[in-house]
Amino acid sequence: MINYDLTDEKLVCTFSGILNSAECQKYQEELILKIRQVELPVVFNLKEVDYIASGFLRICIHIPKSIGSENFSIINVSPHVKKVFKLSGFDNHLNIK
C-alpha cells in the first residue's frame, strides 16, 4: 500500500509491505497519475518494504523518464532491497539514498 504526503516542495510516497507484481499492477496507474498531477519532485520511501518485484523496478525506471532523474529519489531502502538495486544495476541510474 502507498501513503502520499504532499508538501509545497515534493511528493513523498511511502510504501509498505511486499511489493509483488500484483501490488505493483494495482497501484501503478494511480501512482503515475498522481505524480503527473503534482508536477513536483518525487521521493519513494521504502522504509517498510522488504520485497520488490520486477514491476516495481519498472515503475522506478518509468518515473525519472517522465519527470527527470534529478526530480526522483528513493530513501530508506532496507539491505534486502538495496541488494536488489545493486544486483540489477539500477543503483547506477537511480538516486538511492
Binding site: 531502502v77 532496507s78 539491505p79 538495496k82 541488494k83 545493486k86 543503483d91
Partner: peptide
Amino acid sequence: FDTAVNICIDLNF
C-alpha cells in the same frame, strides 16, 4: 545494523 549492512553492501559492490 541495517544502515551498517547497507554500507557493507556499497563497499562489497
